[in-house]
Design a protein around this nucleic acid. Structure first.
Lengths: 193, 193
DNA sequence: ATGGGTGATGGCAGTTACTGCTATCGCCTA
DNA sequence: TAGGCGATAGCAGTAACTGCCATCACCCAT
């Protein structure tokens, strides 16, 4: 079969998404996915570790560039601004393929298990950013707050951005959400927002 | 055995925690927990639905009072302040039993599966708060941002509060974290935080 | 080219988290 | 006291993993 051909994970993920489209994530068995990709069920769990990891294929190294982005950022920025720059780099990556982003988002939101894993993925993202901020001698709690708030803004921005596809790019939506976050958190009394 | 005795879920959860202490969460089998509580494995899954739900027993209705708390809040408060009040109610509940809170937190943090479920629980909390804010005709995105940021502050506050046990009450720690969140999100340049 | 080292894969067996189904059990009410 | 009713036991089955080892393709030195 397709043994020893390159990109085994990619072929498995593609087969998985075909099955998701036909019968949904939960009904797509590990053995079925493997068979459709011409591989053994064992390889699915060896390569992905987890059934829940399969739909996230391609986002493995989202957190890779954070440390570098933040380290190479100019001086004179607050922790939150640094985190914001790091997430903006992510936006560019997601922006490349909106169609697949929407497909993946739909699959994830349709399954409680995958929603849980999605939250864990975003938490890892935030942790990577917070770790990068710590290197800049930023206080631990401030680093976590900055990182997690920015990832929160990213999460909401992605949903807004996917709502109607090609209105504007994710980066613009993200910065808009960040502005609203600033206004929301610092507002006192029901005056403005 | 203990059939038809009251509080079956509580007895199962207690048996579960005894096993967690001896051999850890993952090694504690559903059948073992049931046997220790004098019940059948089937009852574990019927009552909890999930192995991952067992350690969270007692937090089932954390989101219950949110709608009422926010509805009965006075006029003239921002979305964030409303969410803050709702979470403060939660702090009081958690504050009741710090020992069990720490025990549960330790069990949860020791297992990746339980950390995932914990994130999902906090997300439900935030969603409940956001829903309650929507009733007050608050904009959808602002409601989500306010609810999620407050729950984020709660999450970090609980960890800080559990770090050393009896220094101060959770409510005080939570409001301190909220203050730092305000400063972090709205800070521009590396001047103050 | 040939034989061995290496890492990826196939294949099997076993455990465990669940899920339906049905019989049974204890309580409560007429 | 008979019967309804909700909770439980018990069994069978599925599917997600996991450990173990044989096997296979590829690479490299001889």
């Amino acid at each position: 079969m397709g043994r020893w051909q390159p990109d085994a994970k990619g072929r498995l993920a593609a087969a998985a998404y075909e099955l998701y489209a036909r019968k949904g994530y939960e009904a797509a068995t590990g053995a079925e996915i493997a068979a459709r990709a011409g591989m053994h069920e064992r390889s699915v769990f060896r390569l992905f570790g987890d059934k829940k990891e399969i739909p996230f294929h391609g986002m493995e190294d989202v957190a890779a560039g954070f440390a570098e982005t933040i380290r190479s950022a100019p001086e004179g920025l607050s922790a939150f601004e640094l985190a914001q720059r790091a997430v903006e780099g992510q936006c560019a990556l997601i922006n490349i393929n909106p169609a697949h982003a929407k497909l993946r988002h739909d699959v994830i939101m349709a399954s409680p298990d995958l929603r849980e894993r999605d939250l864990a993925k975003h938490a890892e993202l935030a942790e990577a950013i917070a770790d990068a901020l710590l290197i800049r001698r930023i206080d631990g709690i401030v680093a976590r707050l900055a990182a997690e708030s920015c990832v929160l803004a990213l999460r909401i921005a992605v949903e807004e951005w996917l709502r109607d596809s090609t209105v504007s790019d994710l980066n613009r939506v993200f910065n808009g959400v960040v502005d609203r976050l600033r206004a929301t958190v610092s507002s006192v009394g029901d005056s403005t927002p």
